[in-house]
Design a protein around this nucleic acid. Sequence first.
DNA 1: ATTAATAAATGAATAATACTCATTAGTGAA
DNA 2: TTCACTAATGAGTATTATTCATTTATTAAT
Lengths: 301, 301
Amino acid sequence: MIEKIHLSILREISRIGSLTAAANKLSLTQSALSHSMKKLERQHNINLWLKDGRNIRLTEAGSYLLEQANRLLPQFERIDETLRQFANNEKGSLGVGMECHPCYQWLLKVVQPFLAQSPGVDIDVKQRFQFGGMAALFNYDIDLLITPDPIQKERIVFEPVFPYELVLVVSQQNPLAAMTAIQPLQLTDQTLLTYPVETARLDIFQQFLLPAQCMPKLHKTLEATDIILQMVAANRGVAAMPKWLALEYANTLPITVIRLGDSGIHKHIYVGYRKQEKLNKHIQTFITLAKSSGEALAVAD
Amino acid sequence: MIEKIHLSILREISRIGSLTAAANKLSLTQSALSHSMKKLERQHNINLWLKDGRNIRLTEAGSYLLEQANRLLPQFERIDETLRQFANNEKGSLGVGMECHPCYQWLLKVVQPFLAQSPGVDIDVKQRFQFGGMAALFNYDIDLLITPDPIQKERIVFEPVFPYELVLVVSQQNPLAAMTAIQPLQLTDQTLLTYPVETARLDIFQQFLLPAQCMPKLHKTLEATDIILQMVAANRGVAAMPKWLALEYANTLPITVIRLGDSGIHKHIYVGYRKQEKLNKHIQTFITLAKSSGEALAVAD
DNA sequence: ATTAATAAATGAATAATACTCATTAGTGAA
DNA sequence: TTCACTAATGAGTATTATTCATTTATTAAT
């Protein structure tokens, strides 16, 4: 029943003091304002104001409505402003899903410049999915999926953003430390430390050990990258992880990296998103930053 | 830019899940809703939703706007409800001005039933006026003026609501206590206690003493009715006040009332209001209650 | 007192726009 | 494939808001 325009008219009248002046301010005629408010008064069977000489005096109902106008109209103005921000992609949030443990370290390198570049946009990182990362992407639980193992699916696009080599990390005390490359058989008397995920998702098994029908002496799982590397440094086991990640710790821990096989295991981190959101500026910004982070690390390599 | 209708449409869509269903609920066509929202989207250069199969999925901007809808629309509904209350005179406030001290005691007898009868209406009592009660009534500082001395003025109406007799109150120890009526001369050796207002506004002077060119031995002023009567009871002076008011204290204090002159001084309390508000229900309610309170006291007299 | 000036209300005409109708296009189920 | 369902779209219509012209009321000025 009551509309924004009524509140606007009332507020303008109270600011300027007369219908005629308010009409000019609102780029309307005095008549329009009069009609509009009279209609409201008729519909509600109230008086908003009484003529007091040639001026207007608000009734109680009018004063009440003016109060509401002064309260609500700024909120509408705020909404318009926020919508403008959405239009300029200054506003929003990006749900980022992660399907690989070491990706997290890399993600941090992308998130920081992203947040700096898009002050209005929040990033929300999720690592646990009830039905897997792809389902989360489909269900709009997340907007981006970061994974080293893309699955080609209708409506989902994956872009490689970061190439890396999966290497073996060993303690400098470990006899293997002297080698530049290692063969599957040489791992059969080692303790292998991995993240706690199915072996089917561990490349060291899928692409290295299993093809050669080898298994490590022992397989232990640990959540945290830091702890895994501490264990490695203490020569309590060996681990497979991205070379760039291991090298970041190599300065502070007595560890060495060794190529897996003769040519090494080369992988990519992929960023997946819903095909229809190809034009989403946040997603493109993220991917651009992701790729440049990869290049920066590749140079440092 | 953004209007109530947009919020309503969005809220209805989110409740029911489809444009078509929402359109029916809003007594519009699917086309109307589509056009309306598309226009908004064009104007703001945003997408509020994306088609997801045959359903609709809100974008971030859409979700944001829905949040705002769920927040703001109830407020509009509240306003409509309050306006309805104003229409039914269930809502409002009455500014009551007082120009006589003893009126306050009487006012309390009117306010209580008024508040009970009009639960939505507040009463605000004012006793001090920068330019007098009439000016306050003119300036809309108050809506009602309670006074024993009405001034006939354009646009202001006064109605007598409560007749009373002004009597002299004396201690039972006072020799005058035996009398049923008193003459001005008999006050010349008494201490007169009054409220602290100009003698021009005190009837005991204007209508009793001054016409007979008499003055009391002493004239002291006191703010509070209770204290005045305590002083009278202690025979430290005599006072003039409405008979009904003095009688209310006669049970608990050793005081007696005496008629002023042979026929007594008979007055009325008047209620004044702006002529144009003759139809204001609150004002009429107040006056009706005021008159009936007068009748009740008259019977008890 | 009369006149001029100012402001709001009102009625009729018009301009603006919101809405409907008819149709198209896309999706999911049988 | 067809059918059922939903949203988008364009054109025409209907509705509504707005303007214009006038009236009424009040205040200030002559």
